[in-house]
Design a protein around this nucleic acid. Structure first.
Lengths: 196, 196
DNA sequence: GTCTATACTAGGATAGAC
DNA sequence: GTCTATCCTAGTATAGAC
């Protein structure tokens, strides 16, 4: 959460603010986030955030775009075949899990998707989702049914991580079973991260 | 959205308010919803909503519980074998699609799931999700891998409906393909509902 | 490039009447 | 059972100085 240092370039400052914003929007959602909270997380004053981004909506839109770009970049970095015997889907899945370990990233994306009816935010969210779809089809070379599976698994993972059912898994047998049947052999790993 | 009629029993009034609340919380999210908006949707005054539910958080929690119960009830009603040759999963899937046609229901559930970190709301959301899991396992008799598929598909459906990608499908070929590869032969039906 | 001061609105919750 | 009036806080955005 970016430490303060006086008088840096506006571009650098924007980056700092966006990083802070991912965490804050993720935690409190779009409506629940105040520009002041983002400002404090970035170590600057509230009016300056507004000055740089215009409105809170614009700030969220840019934060969402920023996060979607990070998602795309993460997937692209996982495309080239590695030394292991992993399939494309496995490589992409691994990369995704590592990315959404950052709860801010996970929830900023989800909050964006849920604002589909918002005239300013909806189009950005849909466009981002479609870009992922195209990437899976054109760059990863997945067939329709593979895309379907990959996305569906991803959305279930999102939900389980968002609700935090993994934390219950330590004490609740059913929660553990649910995690197990979703994450398979990777449960241990995921649960370890969840409690960390 | 419940029409006003003076001096009914508190219980009836609570039901009216909960119905209104599902629609409003769905549209604006937890933080984005004002108790005043819910009150107006229910045709009563804002302080009376607070009087009946204590706090906005309590109102949301009861709204979420109410919606989760409706979900469970919908699934249970779809369990008994019907005249058609449909599998349990197909019957449950059909029932689910009809339920979440109500955007308020869909989004209230999703908003609830995303508030997993909230100390008051998180436990309710997790408990609801676990109840669904148990129902699929114990009452529908699904095997772990079937549950996994069913839930994953459901979560993808949620996301596509929430973002509103179906609306884009009319003009964007990729959006149409994405809908197709998720909903299969049921696309037409879903898209027709989406535009209605 | 960044701040302080501030205007203005919205919203949760309470008091108390009917 | 339900309302009106009201308090108080929080939050967006602007003006203007440094």
């Amino acid at each position: 959460m970016s430490t303060r240092s006086d008088r840096i370039s506006a571009d650098e400052r924007r980056e700092q603010i966006l990083d802070a914003a991912v965490a804050v929007f993720g935690e409190f959602g779009y409506a629940g986030t105040s520009t002041d909270r983002v400002a404090r997380a970035a170590g600057i004053s509230q009016p300056y955030v507004v000055r740089l981004f215009g409105t809170k909506e614009q700030l969220f839109i840019e934060t969402l775009r920023h996060t979607l770009e990070r998602l795309l970049a993460t997937f692209r970095a996982a495309l080239p075949v590695d030394a292991e015997e992993a399939s494309v889907e496995q490589r992409l899945g691994e990369a995704y899990l590592r990315l959404v370990e950052d709860r801010g990233v996970l929830l900023t994306l989800l909050h964006g998707f849920m604002l589909g009816s918002d005239p300013g935010i909806g189009p950005v969210a849909r466009d981002g989702f479609l870009q992922v779809f195209r990437m899976l089809r054109d760059e990863a070379g997945l067939a329709p049914e593979q895309i379907h599976r990959f996305l569906a698994d991803g959305m279930l993972i999102n939900t389980l991580l968002a609700t935090g059912i993994g934390v219950d898994a330590a004490t609740d047998r059913d929660a553990a079973d649910l995690m197990e049947c979703t994450f398979g052999e990777r449960v241990g790993e995921v649960l370890a991260r969840a409690s960390a």
